[in-house]
Design a protein around this nucleic acid. Structure first.
Lengths: 199, 199
DNA sequence: ATTATTTTGTTCGCAAGTGTACAAAACCAC
DNA sequence: GTGGTTTTGTACACTTGCGAACAAAATAAT
């Protein structure tokens, strides 16, 4: 019961996420966002409590939509390297497809060191660390599956892959085509022996 | 002639650069910066004309201090791969040494897409592109010197190195040690055959 | 219809930042 | 010391943003 809201809350979070993705967290004020949503700040605070809380929701939404591809659809015993390569390839495509060249919202957020967003930064770091940790696990599984030779430097390979993923997300902000992104990625993947290009 | 300024302009630019490095361009206001410099906004505008102009100066200063190591001290005919590896190694060290974990000011600035800083973003992109172009050249020279086998994918290697450099700068923002940064870098450099670790 | 509940619209006071204008101050040269 | 010059200090008018308070509006349940 009670008066019905005149806007779709979920849609609003999505809009907020895109605003933050495009302009960075810093520039998205409660005021500007409320205007964009066609509501008053009054309603904003009523619905979202605070800007920080909305940022948190936007991050959750972002992460839920980018569920990695690493774990999603993963079947025990299935070959992992092709999946890994597919994930990287999809990343290249996604980054290049975004006409605004916004890169990765999370990675972008990493640079917003502002003490204001301590909570957001913390969440981003925690999430990225967790995803990177899965890279280690993935390589271990690849070895178990016999897809990858254990040269005693698995952890080093995982670190290299971390830097590749971060690097690709940044490269996407320098007018780069999907082809160039994927060539950069493929070169690293191949030389790390975690990917064999199809003949 | 005229009344002498009560502050050191060059020192001020340096302070401004560090402020921007630490907090991002967005958060450095004329007001806060003037306070930090112990001058009034009046003097600020008199000395720097505008915030944008100061950002431009700060960028110039930053780039001049990070003169790459790629070209500086480069001698025609000298082996380039060790120099390249040395540059990457120094990058790892510099990034890890910075207790504030600020990463690279230029790379950070890449994400500040705000239309306010269109000029700054443009300058950063242009500079990074130029430096990356030198990577291509460097690899070509390595081939000429017989340091590197031309497998027909030189450009791909250069792209991979680009992503490595960008990635390292971002990795530095996730609590990473110098050792881990260098291990990530070394792994990529070695697998790309542009570096041979000393025995 | 009345009531409880929830969202809205409006208003207030406050803080921070912008850019400009103009007088006061401090110096150099003559 | 008188001028010319440059930097400072102070003031003004303006914009954007914040968060809270409170009344008005719109609904569901009874």
């Amino acid at each position: 019961m009670g008066r019905p809201a005149k806007f779709d809350r979920d849609a609003a979070v999505k809009i907020a996420m895109n605003e933050m993705w495009t302009n960075g967290f810093e520039l998205v004020s409660v005021q500007s966002l409320s205007e964009k949503l066609g509501i008053t700040r009054s309603s904003f605070y009523n619905a979202f409590v605070s800007r920080e809380a909305l940022i948190d929701e936007a991050l959750d939404l972002y992460f839920s939509r980018t569920a990695d591809g690493i774990w999603v659809g993963f079947k025990e015993g299935a070959p992992v390297l092709p999946m890994l390569a597919g994930m990287v390839r999809k990343l290249c495509k996604d980054r290049a497809t975004d006409v605004l060249g916004r890169g990765c919202m999370a990675v972008n957020g990493l640079t917003e060191t502002s003490p204001n967003h301590a909570a957001a930064t913390k969440k981003i770091i925690a999430t990225l660390e967790a995803r990177f940790a899965r890279l280690d696990l993935l390589l271990t599984k690849a070895v178990e599956n016999g897809e990858l030779k254990d040269d005693g430097c698995l952890r080093d390979k995982a670190l290299a892959l971390q830097s590749l993923l971060l690097g690709l997300n940044m490269m996407a902000k320098l007018e780069r085509s999907e082809d160039e992104l994927w060539r950069a990625a493929k070169t690293v993947l191949c030389s790390l022996k975690v990917y064999e290009p199809e003949p």
